[in-house]
Design a protein around this nucleic acid. Sequence first.
DNA 1: GCTAGAGGGAATCTTG
DNA 2: ACAAGATTCCCTCTAG
Length: 272
Amino acid sequence: MASSEGNTAAYKMTPLDNDINQHYQDAIDVLQQHSNEPYYDADYMYYETLDTQQPSLQCQISCCLVNHPSDVPPYDWKDTSQQTWPQVMPDASLAHSLQSEAPHFYSVSPPQKNSKGRKKLRLYEYLHEALNDPNMVDTIQWTDSGNGTFHFISKNKEKLAKCWGQRKGNRKTMTYQKMARALRNYSRTGEIMKVRRKLTYQFNPDILHKLGSTLGGQQGFHTRQQQQNQNLGEQSYGESMMADWSSWYGHHQVQEEFNLNSSFALHSLTKL
DNA sequence: GCTAGAGGGAATCTTG
DNA sequence: ACAAGATTCCCTCTAG
């Protein structure tokens, strides 16, 4: 298959990389499990329990009651997709984010399903929501919220998928495989890209920015990001995240990852 | 050889 | 009716 050849080249990983990454992820998972501080934002008003018939599932997706101004213009996703996303951030910063990141919670607009004139809830919106839902921390976690990298928890990824399927009201059970298929479609539009690590993906910074900027108009994503980055001792790039994406990337990149980026860029361009 | 994860083609469904 | 996005099914490939 021609496409897989290109990807193989792009995602080439050394066994050592895999080893380190896997151990790293395990460490993160453990840390997250043990640092599950009960921290609720005031905007988290209630939880909607899904699938009560399946106790094992018990996925609770936080919903918010924050008013969502009806006059807020919808995202111009089209425009976003037209922008190239040449700098796909691999794992350059992973080493900097070994500590568990206490999830920062904020309100997210509820699904606009079937609402007149509203967009349907999209998968990446749901994922972003889940990423900031304390109840979903065992299914999906930020790897580095600063650069929008997140990963699914292998053990519970199916749970998240089921939640997504139920949220959408699918007739059949959603599986991780199917959800991942949808995620792969995002690679074409550039909304979410695959990171060369198991179960790990990355939001397009633009999407991340937009998702962050629609969080009820509260303090905003950037403030948290800046705070977080300061905590991490990392370079803070909050307000200029978008503009500095490339330079920030360049700050962290290593040669191998640079090559990876080139491959990504090439790959994206050839598909567009 | 087996399994998990990834990648993608294609048909189909849902919704605006 | 149409298009976009998501779902579903299925296949191949790679790494461990």
